[in-house]
Write a protein that binds this DNA or RNA. Structure first.
Length: 640
RNA sequence: GCCGACGUAACUCAGUUGGUAGAGUAGCUGAUUUGUAAUCAGCCUGUCCUCGGUUCGAUUCCGGGCGUCGGCUCCA
């Protein structure tokens, strides 16, 4: 029999008979691998395990440990779920059912939205389908036949999907009594799914377009072993415990009130203290790095926003103007127009540039009710905004510098893992191609120079310029959009900005718009979730709880608090007539980093018994020792 | 905005198949003076989100609004 040569990822090769399937190849490596194999990559293409190899090829076997394997696994689950739904709710039309980062979803067009009980029924039917251990099988169909096939079944979404496909033939996957238009690949059979759970259902627009029908989406997760599902559910629980809305309440950091209005943050004293520390640090860093800090008003004449173009392209996020003496004034959704006006207040020379103006500017934006979310998405927030006015020949180094400064700031707060995106020219854009090319090139160069890996988001730039978005990753791997560095061709043009260059010519400056933390509100929310409320010492609202064991030690403890405060530390005494255990508990619950327990022994020796949050008793220290070590910890910001 | 769920004391939640409500925590008062995550006792707390409708009577049923949650969409 003819043979083919199969090459494995370790570069070893082995001959096989022509027509050998992926599963057989896996078996030849080890029976164990064959048991957990989900798919095979043949010359770069992920295929079913049943796929036969007909020519020399390099292959990789995918299991649940590989992203590709998981995708295949979850995608197969979406088919199983779709079968269950169609059997339980006859007449349901299928839309799409892809795998996602953790699990899958499938969108259905059903008469009535799914209830939680429905999900239970669907799970039950899915278990039956899994128990069948029905094999997945693939068949091709001529494109026109497939369209006719789905027309006859009134599967209008599938018809639309096929109509958008260019290929002459399309593939269908079959298992049990179910068929679905699908590129595949799939797991060998339904039985490989050992544990799954349907997480939630919700509305979702067909193809994400709010002008098209609303479908019902069901999300699910699944694993090849039950303990993996349990782990996932545990992780969900953990994430829930980190929820900044929950912690914000427990630690009395911030508050929302119906009476005040949705999406409007009330910063409670403890949260405000943290904010102040963040802002103080931010200010100092800016002053130390050639920024000037400015302040601008909260409202301005509508004409200013006409000139900036916001009333045109940003109208849907702006509140209605208010009437003042017959003139319309607009609550600000952005700070930029003010900085433009400030730039125009005098003439600038190339010697003055780059000019860097930073402002903690509070802006108000209309957000649709359904999108508000704790501190992460609000209607009034403070941007750590800045605008750089840059001479045309200095743009490369300015962007590079900005990026470095940005990363430096993020690192200071304990974030050293990022997802970075470079967004390029969208279809509708102002400015000429040469400018765009130059700007995109400059951003790209800055990223490369900084050695930061990034992805290009083609066409995702703002109409006024390309941008770099930086998402920070928190301690449990979720990413959050914070920093943005944006090129702006529009505003210097609209406000007719210029500077006098060294040759005496008036030139238009380039403008960079940047936010590092993004919104102080959101950044605070991210910090809370990142640290699960256990703030590093420099940020903790109360750094030390001084706990007298009995009332007669209150005076001594009062003096300890005073000394700590004089040394710049935030300390509080708990002088309630409670037992020490209760005081410790109260401080632990508030996640206070240090507790100084004080009894008669400590008071006599000018010392305290130091207890660390989450760790416990770490021994007796003199006040001076304890103070010095805390000050060192504050200075280090808890970073290595 | 759209789909769905939800809204009871400061917090977490129970309850009323329609007859205006309750537990723990917190708070207050008193007793206790305590050695590393809850001392004991007593007391207080509510337009049961809001506005309408049905009803003899609505916190409960129905509808509008507001808000929250999970998504869609959007974004700092």
């Amino acid at each position: 029999m003819a043979q083919v040569e199969i090459k494995f990822p370790d570069d070893s090769t082995k001959p096989f008979d022509v027509g050998t399937t992926g599963l057989e190849i896996a078996k030849s490596i080890s029976p164990r691998l064959a048991k957990v194999a989900l798919a095979i990559e043949i010359n770069g293409q992920v295929c079913d395990l049943g796929h036969a190899v007909t020519q020399d090829a390099s292959v990789r076997i995918f299991t649940f440990d590989d992203v590709e394997g998981r995708q295949v696994f979850w995608h197969s689950c979406s088919h199983i779920m779709a079968q269950a739904v169609q059997e339980l709710f006859p007449g349901t039309k299928l839309a799409i059912g892809p795998s996602i980062e953790e699990g899958w979803y499938y969108d259905f067009d059903v008469e009535k939205p799914f209830s939680p009980e429905d999900l239970g029924k669907i799970e039950k039917r899915m278990k039956e389908i899994i128990a069948e251990n029905a094999p997945f099988r693939c068949e091709s169909m001529n494109r026109d036949d497939a369209i006719k096939h789905y027309r006859d079944k009134s599967e209008t979404y599938k018809v639309e999907l096929i109509e958008d496909l260019k290929d002459e033939t399309v593939s269908f996957y079959y298992h049990s009594r179910f068929e679905d238009l699908c590129l595949g690949p799939h797991v060998p059979s339904t039985g490989v799914v050992k544990a799954f759970k349907l997480i939630s259902s919700s509305g979702a627009y067909w193809r994400g377009d709010e002008h098209r029908p609303m479908l019902q989406r069901i999300y699910g997760v699944a694993y090849p072993k039950k303990n993996l599902l349990d782990d996932y559910l545990k992780r969900l629980e953990e994430a829930k415990k980190r929820d900044h809305r929950v912690i914000g309440k427990q630690l009395e950091l911030f508050h929302f009130s119906d009476e005040v209005g949705a999406g409007l943050v009330l910063w409670m004293p403890r949260g405000a203290r943290i904010r102040q520390i963040i802002e103080d640090y931010w200010r100092q860093q800016h002053l130390d790095n050639d920024y000037d800090i400015v302040f601008t008003p909260h409202i301005a004449k509508q004409e200013l926003w006409d000139q900036s173009g916001h009333t045109g392209f940003y109208a849907e996020n702006m509140y209605k103007p208010i009437d003042i003496d017959g003139r319309k004034f607009q609550l600000k959704p952005m700070n930029c127009p003010f900085h433009m006006q400030m730039y125009k207040s005098r003439l600038w020379s190339y010697r003055d540039l780059p000019l860097r103006w930073a402002e903690l500017g509070t802006v108000y934006r209309y957000e649709r009710p359904g999108v508000l979310h704790g501190l992460m998405r609000v209607r009034g927030f403070t941007q750590d905004d800045a605008h750089h006015f840059v001479a045309r020949d200095r743009i490369d180094e300015e962007l590079s510098w900005t990026l470095d400064f940005c990363i430096h700031m993020l690192r200071s707060f304990g974030f050293d893992s990022y997802d970075i995106y470079l967004s390029t020219r969208p279809e509708k854009a102002i400015g000429d191609d040469a400018d765009w090319d130059k700007a995109e090139g400059a951003l790209r160069t800055a990223l490369k120079k900084a050695g930061l890996p990034f992805e290009v988001d083609p066409g995702e730039g703002v109409f006024y310029g390309p941008k770099i978005d930086i998402k920070i990753k928190d301690s449990i791997g979720r990413s959050w959009q914070c920093s943005t560095i944006q090129f702006d061709f529009s505003l210097p043009e609209r406000f007719d900005l210029h500077y006098t260059d060294r040759d005496g010519e008036r030139r238009r400056p380039y403008m960079v718009h940047r936010a590092l933390l993004g919104s102080i509100e959101r950044f605070f929310g991210v910090l809370i979730e990142h640290y699960a409320g256990n703030f590093p010492l420099w940020l903790a609202p109360v750094q030390v709880a001084v706990l007298p064991i009995s009332d007669d030690l209150n005076d001594y403890c009062g003096r300890v608090v005073k000394r700590l405060k004089e040394a710049g530390l935030r300390a509080e005494i708990d002088d309630r007539s409670e037992k020490i255990g209760a005081k410790i508990r109260a401080a632990e619950i508030m996640k206070t980093p240090y507790m100084f327990v004080v009894g008669a022994r400590e008071a006599e020796a000018d010392s305290v018994s130091v207890r660390k949050h989450g760790t416990g008793d770490i021994g007796v220290k003199t006040i001076d020792e304890a103070l010095a070590s805390l000050q060192a910890e504050v200075a280090s910001k808890g970073l290595e």
